[in-house]
Design a protein around this nucleic acid. Structure first.
Length: 261
DNA sequence: ATGGTTGCCAAGCAA
């Protein structure tokens, strides 16, 4: 079984490429981030035509997460307990959706962008991650297979950015963010993609300044699996090809191959 | 050279 995560940067503007990619990559489950639309705007019919069920959580033109599956989709959860609120008025944003597919509990997550080390968004981001840490610990204690998939807006290691000098005073690499990411790992999950990749294998490249052809990217999209699932992962790939050409998302899809239970 | 890109939706914000 092939499971993937992809920040598509608007499902409506990307639907043609998403449709082509899920067929080319032959994925059974796709966790999507940044759908950027309400539920009534989501192109459900396009996924249904390909044989995928979809659970979507989208409240407005921002954020938005979904899970598409052709191996079953059960027990959908939109958000999880104690997530911090944001905005005026403060609301819980559409940044997490969970579903059970082929016996595996999968989460599509869009971690808040801290924007800058000193920005209020950074405290929101860290609080959000701490809530995720608490939940991860609880999920791990059940001993069931699960994965946290999505855009973390964190580059946990120096090799995960094209230049540490460039990012030194910026978000995504700060010690508090990296500590928050590590705390989630310590709660009971592991990065199952890294063992199958090399330094310089990024998942995101800015649209600006020719970042992609200059290979100036970051590795900020991850699949973190609990032990019962991690031991079934047979391979992984970041599909850099999908970042090429007109109409590409600024993120590449990340795929894992999982053995049957 | 203080630039450039994309998507929301139609001015400015978000990434």
């Amino acid at each position: 079984m092939r499971i993937a995560t992809w920040n598509v940067n608007s499902i409506r503007s990307r639907i043609d490429r998403v449709e082509a990619w899920v067929q080319r990559a032959d994925v059974d489950v796709l966790a999507i981030q940044e759908t950027k639309c309400r539920e009534d705007q989501f192109p459900h019919d396009r996924f249904a035509a390909l044989g995928y069920e979809v659970a979507h959580h989208g409240l407005n033109q921002w954020n938005g997460v979904a899970i598409a599956s052709r191996v079953g989709l059960e027990d959908v959860s939109r958000g999880f307990p104690d997530l911090p609120q944001w905005g005026e008025p403060a609301v819980e944003e559409a940044r997490a959706i969970g579903a059970t597919c082929a016996g595996i509990r999968l989460w599509s997550l869009y971690v808040p962008n801290g924007r800058h080390i000193t920005d209020p968004h950074m405290q929101y981001k860290l609080a959000w991650l701490d809530t995720l840490r608490v939940q991860t610990q609880a999920w791990a204690e059940t001993g069931s297979p699960f994965a946290l998939m999505g855009d973390w807006n964190i580059a946990p290691q120096d090799e995960d950015v094209w230049s540490m000098e460039y990012y030194l005073d910026k978000s995504h690499v700060s010690p508090p963010e990296r500590a928050a990411f590590q705390a989630v790992l310590d709660a009971g999950v592991t990065d199952v993609v890294r063992p199958h990749t090399e330094p310089g294998d990024f998942t995101y490249w800015d649209y600006q300044r020719l970042a992609f052809p200059k290979r100036r990217g970051m590795r900020i999209d991850f699949i973190l699996a609990s032990e019962p699932l991690a031991e079934r992962v047979q391979g992984a790939v970041i599909d850099r090809e999908e970042r090429k050409g007109q109409g590409a998302s600024d993120h590449a899809p990340v795929v894992i191959e999982v053995a049957d239970a």
